[in-house]
Design a protein around this nucleic acid. Structure first.
Lengths: 231, 231
DNA sequence: CGGTCACAAATTGTTATACAATCCTTGCAT
DNA sequence: ATGCAAGGATTGTATAACAATTTGTGACCG
């Protein structure tokens, strides 16, 4: 349903994940309607969807804002990620699915290369891909989608709290995780996954200068479906 | 945001959970607008929300229908429930949170009484409450909400596939689960939770006669906020 | 009798406009 | 400054309208 609304949803989502829209930014209905060249009704549908996705918060009679999670919520999100990934790892071991870890090794390889070449964006993306690929091996759509949602929220968080580009010892961890799964060491994998995520969560810096974001139109410009707007 | 839309969302949700609206039922925009005495715009927002909740599926240019999950999806939902509840149980044990299991014992007690009195509805509800209460002890909103969502979908499923009112050995299982948590027997709890859920999932009967549901207006009548509708 | 094509009816997707309710700002009076 | 009130801006909702698409119907043909 509603083609245009989903266009808005994905544009805004992408903009948030890219930190082009920072938490707290107001998403005015008329403004978005202007930008996307559609009516307010469509924008509202999009906002409802976005809010269900957790990236946007709706405040009755006040409008929509890019979500601005508290530190407590941030920690819950990382805990949830940990829980899901631990469960998946455990299931993979139970299933003896170690055989299918090949493509994940490749992912790590590519990420390693990206880091060498100092391609920030790519290595970052590949780092995320590792986690989603891992969860996908669990073969459960519900879990996959939940994990994806958490990942999106985590991406938002990093725009809020993170101080340091986190691409540090990650690839190494990732390989360790695969090793442990292959060797069937349940407890060890789970510990690894937990600390792996906690490293990120603990590095949060609550009091951080947050830069104002540009006017909406500019922040969203790169994501427009191709509905230019003449003044 | 959007007061009226949420009224529609909760009314339709409740109707689905109560099996007053059966899977596959078409939810026409005009019809709903008529019934709830609001405009199509509002109804559409509600439908978008409902679809995000997984109880309604939107088909482009065709409309909205009460979700009609396949057997495969049904099993995934129960697997996901199992995963979540297992994780929570494990965490509770790790935390040594056995102390707070008192109110859950009470729940079981009440359910036992309800069963004795043959109060189907109540015992059923209390059975569900056990699971949500358990998850709540995990103190993670993300997980709680995900679990709630899965529970709603499971309720829908029971209207689809279940043949037999499942209230059989459940209370007993529930007490066992609490016992095992108190005694810190991780592996045993997890097994228990798994089989507990599998009993339900395995009892599914795919080919089942499904009764047509009444006209929308009648199915929804009990849930209207108080916007009567004159013909 | 069955199939298929064309057209009409119904429904969805979307826009525009309007207006009440609520929030926010600004300027004024104290 | 502080508090208040008026006005402007924004949201919440309704109505009407129309294009696009799907669905239903019936005529026509094999």
């Amino acid at each position: 349903m509603t083609d245009k609304a989903s266009a808005i949803v994905s544009a805004v989502t992408q903009a948030i994940l890219d930190h082009n829209l920072v938490p707290g930014t107001k998403l005015g209905e008329r403004e978005l309607a202007e930008i996307f060249g559609s009516s307010r009704v469509i924008v509202r549908q999009a906002l409802v969807e976005l809010s269900d996705g957790g990236l946007v918060s709706l405040q009755r009679n006040r409008g929509a804002f890019v979500a601005n999670p508290s530190l407590a919520e941030a920690l819950e999100i990382y805990d949830a990620l940990t829980i899901i990934e631990q469960s998946v790892a455990e299931i993979l071991i139970e299933r003896g699915a170690a055989a299918r870890l090949g493509e994940m090794r490749q992912l790590n390889e590519r990420q390693r290369k990206a880091i060498e070449e100092e391609n920030r964006q790519l290595s970052h993306d590949l780092g995320r891909d590792f986690h989603t690929a891992l969860v996908r091996l669990g073969r459960n759509r519900q879990i996959e989608e939940f994990h994806a949602r958490l990942t999106r929220q985590a991406a938002l968080l990093s725009s809020l709290y993170t101080t340091d580009p986190e691409a540090c010892g990650f690839v190494h961890d990732h390989d360790d995780i695969l090793d442990l799964i292959e060797r069937g060491e349940v407890a060890a994998v789970k510990r690894k996954i937990q600390t792996h995520n906690q490293v990120v969560a603990r590095s949060f810096n609550y009091d951080q200068v947050r830069e104002q974001s540009l006017p909406l139109a500019e922040s969203l410009a790169p994501y427009l479906p191709s509905n230019a707007r003449s003044a």
